[in-house]
Simulated assay, not measured.
Amino acid sequence: MELLNKVIVITGASSGAGRAAALEFAQRGTKLVIGARNESALNDVKEECEGLGAEVLVVPTDTSNATDMTALANAANDTFGGIDVWINNAGVLAAGDFDKTPMAVHEQVVKTNLLGYMNGAHAVLPFFKAQQYGVLINNISIGGFLPVPYGAGYTAAKFGLRGFSEALKGELTQWPDVIVCDLFPAFLDTPGIEHAGNYTGKALKPAPPVYDPVRVAQAMVEVARHPKSNTYVGSVSLLLKFGHALFPELMTKITGLVMRRYLKNADPIALTDGNVFNTVDYGMSSHGRFGWPGKPKVHRKYLLSAALIGLTAGYIISKQRN
């Protein structure tokens, strides 16, 4: 698919990977429809994208609300005469002991991260089927394969999202030009963790290596042009996927241990709902402040070391069991 004048809908476009994606697509002369809860931030993104040559429609949208998502799809179709690519990207995060985190928070995380994507697919598929083509991109993250201790609601949503998408792909085989594409990026340098609901009482930061969200945005552009079922962004994404597939119990224990050790030493911070229930007015850029300097290849020595450690630990555990 050549992207000039194509209609691209992006949710969660006010910051992070969604904002980076809007800027990447804008450079290809697309017609953008951007949705998020923060209308002021969306208008800033609109101004940047128009400066790059795109036509942009802003639609304030809460993805956890099915009516909002239907309105987003209708606005895109009414304004630009169709939808070529729909990107489900909006998400929220909440960290804390499962039983110490309010159930209302877990519920909202699932509503945004799982039902929000389902709402998006439900809203756009009638348009795709009517025109007999379209690309649906789900930005799932490696969290769809690797559980996140102290983020149980997030993990439940991401595991469920991967299952939903796989089921949808099977259902749509009779529509060969309606294509569902899943992205599984590793940890990203976005403001998302600053926006997170935090019930740990400790300052949060992502585990290294942390990748540039522009890499995810570029992957979205590539998948829009050349759709494929699954795309892994960052070498560590595949490493974590296969590590958990080979040694699920070990990987789960290691991630829990790493989290507990980090939280023990992290700086104290006040508990907060973050942006779980409402938008925030800070950290609305594409990037956070956690990225590693250097090009992606810089990470390889760290990944190789982690792989060797994991394989050695797995071998030792298997020998002990035998």
Results as ranks from 00 to 15, higher is better:
190 T>K: 08
208 P>I: 00
200 T>E: 02
189 D>R: 01
215 R>F: 09
193 I>N: 01
177 D>H: 15
201 G>N: 14
204 L>V: 05
183 L>R: 02
208 P>L: 00
200 T>W: 04
214 V>W: 01
211 Y>G: 14
179 I>T: 14
195 H>V: 04
214 V>S: 03
174 Q>T: 15
175 W>Y: 15
207 A>W: 04
197 G>T: 07
216 V>Q: 01
177 D>C: 02
207 A>N: 06
178 V>F: 02
200 T>G: 03
218 Q>L: 15
199 Y>R: 09
205 K>H: 11
175 W>F: 13
183 L>Y: 05
174 Q>M: 10
182 D>R: 00
204 L>E: 05
216 V>W: 03
209 P>N: 09
212 D>E: 01
184 F>H: 15
202 K>W: 07
191 P>V: 13
217 A>Q: 09
196 A>Y: 09
216 V>D: 00
203 A>H: 06
188 L>C: 11
191 P>G: 11
215 R>D: 13
195 H>T: 04
187 F>N: 14
202 K>F: 10
176 P>Q: 13
206 P>F: 06
178 V>M: 00
200 T>K: 02
190 T>L: 07
190 T>R: 05
179 I>A: 02
177 D>I: 03
205 K>D: 03
176 P>N: 10
205 K>A: 15
201 G>M: 13
189 D>P: 05
212 D>M: 01
192 G>P: 00
190 T>N: 05
197 G>I: 05
199 Y>Q: 03
195 H>Q: 10
205 K>S: 14
181 C>P: 06
210 V>T: 12
180 V>M: 12
182 D>Q: 13
198 N>D: 03
207 A>D: 11
172 L>V: 06
188 L>I: 11
210 V>M: 03
